[in-house]
């Protein structure tokens, strides 16, 4: 069992989990407020990675030697790409269907997702081939004795934690956050209270999309290979993490993401041939025990 449950595997699991957490944060925010399974979220993540890639090669010559500045520029590029596209998707494909059956916007979300993937893949400038992602920050491996940890893992974990705290504060402490919570609970009542619902929702998409973009950048740096279809699996995992943690619950999404990462790692180490199956079985059991997610609250049914 030494090769399965050891310090290195815990580090491995935390690394996988922190990427999931970064995507799940933006996901659960949008999800909590519009209750839309946003299939395109993984594609905002992919766009973030591509925008960072493009920005790196566009500005690389300008900032030779200034690693910190370069990192800042690519971060802005990735967040802007994810945020703007999310905003556009909301305006063009989700907003017109806001008061229609919620499943109609589910289908447009699938449509947006397919469009972004196939469009980038068909576009000659991007294309369907894998691209290697540049090392924006130098890669350093830190030896902890019985485990090796890369500086990227630490960066991922720290950023996920900072964003989680920041988002929680935004939602709990600011006026905008209050408006977001109001919209999430009851759209009609919120409107009657004078809240501009569409503005709040647009803002939510902007933040959620830019988080996805940043996650794309970090994933690109950690696993230096990007492709237009790279968002499908992580998008699905973020959805699962968000539901596992309790819909709309921000610390819950992060918790869900780390549980998924660790479950996948240990399951793969235990038996890699059926690892994915075991991870899903764990997920099902958790949900059967806690049908409203790990940190979700019990809401009384209304008639």
């Amino acid at each position: 069992m030494g090769a399965i449950f050891n310090a290195q595997q815990i580090v491995n699991g935390l690394q996988v989990g922190s990427i999931y957490a970064l995507i799940a944060l933006g996901y659960t925010m949008v999800y909590g407020i519009v209750r839309l399974i946003n299939f395109a979220h993984g594609d905002f993540y992919m766009l973030g990675a591509y925008a960072a890639y493009g920005a790196f090669f566009a500005f690389n010559a300008l900032f030779v030697g200034k690693t910190g500045l370069m990192a800042f520029v690519v971060l802005i590029a990735s967040m802007a790409a994810g945020g703007v596209i999310a905003l556009l998707a909301n305006r063009l494909a989700y907003k017109p269907l806001r008061y229609k059956p919620k499943l109609s916007s589910l289908i447009t979300a699938i449509g947006v997702s397919m469009f972004l993937e196939y469009f980038l893949s068909a576009l000659p400038a991007v294309g369907p081939s894998y691209r290697s992602f540049p090392d924006i920050l130098p890669r350093v491996n830190i030896n902890l004795g019985n485990a090796v940890i890369s500086n990227y893992v630490i960066i991922d974990i720290v950023i996920a934690a900072v964003l989680m705290v920041g988002l929680t504060l935004l939602i709990k402490k600011t006026t905008l956050g209050k408006a977001m919570r109001a919209v999430s609970q009851d759209k009609d009542a919120a409107r009657l209270m004078g809240i501009d619902i569409e503005k709040v929702i647009a803002f939510t998409f902007l933040i959620g999309g830019s988080f996805a973009g940043a996650a794309g950048l970090l994933a690109g740096m950690t696993y230096p290979r990007i492709v237009p279809y790279m968002g499908i699996q992580p998008g699905l995992k973020a959805f699962i993490a968000a539901v596992l943690g309790g819909i709309g619950n921000i610390p819950g999404a992060v918790l869900g993401a780390y549980i998924m990462g660790l479950a996948e790692t240990f399951a793969s180490a235990y038996n890699s041939l059926i690892g994915e199956g075991i991870a899903f079985a764990i997920l099902i059991i958790v949900l059967l025990v806690r049908p409203r997610g790990l940190l979700g609250e019990k809401i009384a049914d209304k008639i």
Partner: peptide, 21 residues
């Protein structure tokens, strides 16, 4: 490679103009 691009756009338009399916 452009087939699915058109397909996904049509899917979005169908849902926007026939919102109930």
């Amino acid at each position: 490679e452009w087939r699915m691009v058109v397909y996904s756009l049509l899917l979005i338009f169908i849902m926007l103009f026939k919102t109930e399916g």
